[in-house]
Design a binder for these strands. Sequence first.
DNA 1: TTGTAAGCGTTATCAT
DNA 2: ATGATAACGCTTACAA
Lengths: 336, 336
Amino acid sequence: MAGTIKDIAKHTGLSLGTISKFINGGRVREANRDKIERAIKELDFHVNEIARGLKTSKSKTIGIIIPSMENFFCTSLISRVEKHLSKHGYSGIICDYQEDPQMEKEKLVFLINKMVDGIIIVPSGDTQKEIQQVLDRGIPVVTVDRILPDIACDSVVVDNFKISGEAVEYFVGQDHRRIAIICGPRNISTAEERLNGYLAVHEKFRLTVDPDLIQFGDYYMQSGYELCRRLLDLPEPPTAIFATNYDITLGVISALNERNIRIPEQLSLIGFDNLNLSKVIKPALSLVVQPMDQLADATTKLMLERLEGTLQGIPQLVKFEAELVIKDSVISPLHK
Amino acid sequence: MAGTIKDIAKHTGLSLGTISKFINGGRVREANRDKIERAIKELDFHVNEIARGLKTSKSKTIGIIIPSMENFFCTSLISRVEKHLSKHGYSGIICDYQEDPQMEKEKLVFLINKMVDGIIIVPSGDTQKEIQQVLDRGIPVVTVDRILPDIACDSVVVDNFKISGEAVEYFVGQDHRRIAIICGPRNISTAEERLNGYLAVHEKFRLTVDPDLIQFGDYYMQSGYELCRRLLDLPEPPTAIFATNYDITLGVISALNERNIRIPEQLSLIGFDNLNLSKVIKPALSLVVQPMDQLADATTKLMLERLEGTLQGIPQLVKFEAELVIKDSVISPLHK
DNA sequence: TTGTAAGCGTTATCAT
DNA sequence: ATGATAACGCTTACAA
């Protein structure tokens, strides 16, 4: 059904080698060029990348692994990564592991079997051994959003400690003293850093840290919802909540809505990611915005450089600044 | 670096054929089984799917093409599709064409080159010729969410005409007479059907159709935002708006917020997709919810059956019912 | 510039 | 049950 180089050879009377050379940009006699081009059209020839990959042992494919396809941060990241990749002749094969480390391992194996040239991953944190094995096979890995403590590979992150501090400090500046934070899983570096930023600001201002105000969830909306309810049910509830990812932010808002708690009059909120959300929520939501383009750029760049050998040696850690966008969801509790 | 079957053969003293058979589930002598298994572990052997694919001319890979990775409907769809696919030993290679038909064509070629066994696509509508070519190569195609008038392939959609009618009829029942609809691009069957549902209800109730109240946008939030503003600026603005996809819904809400127009007191709204949104918006948003699981199930099922030859002959059109979830964003304009 | 032939890692056929 | 060998479609020396 699909024409092969062999078919073209037959059709033109030229040899395999010549056709192949032409396809890969080599020079052939003018007349032959025409013949080949015509044959390609007529036979609807497409390079069989599989066969090519087998021969060159390069698939020109990058595996991309994310926790969930329904995670806004991840999809907006990989959308950009894919764009860059394809600009450089690479393509991405995207997998989500549904927040399940076991599945993450399977995807890793799957991608290895698919002979990907490299892997870009937003890791769960529970598959360090397996990721090390990938590296051991000589396949470059770049982690995004999160770093893996035991793994020596390139990583791209934002300065979570700092931005989290800024958010919390903003609360403090608005007279909040009972500030809650809803964190992600503790084994995720990003979540840990955001917590550390929270703690550092408390220390800086000598505020007592109430452990009840520090909640750990997974990164699902449901989790944000439940933990927010738990916070609200505290004998002495917080006056402000810092939701440390997008889905948690959604969950918090839905819990607040359910109880008819008004933002910011009754409770102040700073959310995370997705500037669009702030336009849709009333009042406009203050939130931490991550530099998606920069993250995607840097990630792709690192991967491409490793692949091309331009970058060698010790792993790079690229860190960007996130931005605190202030809108109308924070107000001093004293103004009540 | 990576062990091959040949390596295992050397390591065990057995032949290529035997190893291959074992790997593919054939029987081998107990003792040999052990030897092979041990060798696999020791050499960290993984099947080279590329080589296998070359030989079998089956890549066990399905190409998945969607308009945008940042489109909630699409990502939540493909997330489910991928899940099913992998359950059946297939994997998906996901591409987005960023709403650009030209790019869509490129992705089609790309996937063909990657030797995908089939293609699942949410098509732009402008690449029918190219999709036909894919079919001509014997590669099964299933379109989701949209049907292609000139193409004979399997499709999975919801009954857009009907659900749109229900939404508009709900408005009518709430005494609305100036009902606006913000549609997607006209060449997308789904958008057209949603408009037709709107028109049919107007006809049914003998309501005059004001062309000003029918706006066509693309499926981006920005579009919903702008068209909503245009509607609001009408000499006689609508009392209700039907936003016919998720991003348009977001855009409408943000425009409304910007002008401090209260839902539903000043304007009633029915949105589309993403039940979570309705929990986050105040007041809770009434919206059309699509049966994502059913859509994904049916899509995967059709593809798998075509691949396995279980399903042959004329293209199937599978249609599901969407659901109108009523919350608090619609009120009678007479109650003002 | 063009042709020839080997080989990438598998599977599949055919003997044994 | 196992082994030898050809073949998948391509690239790449090397020879012509």
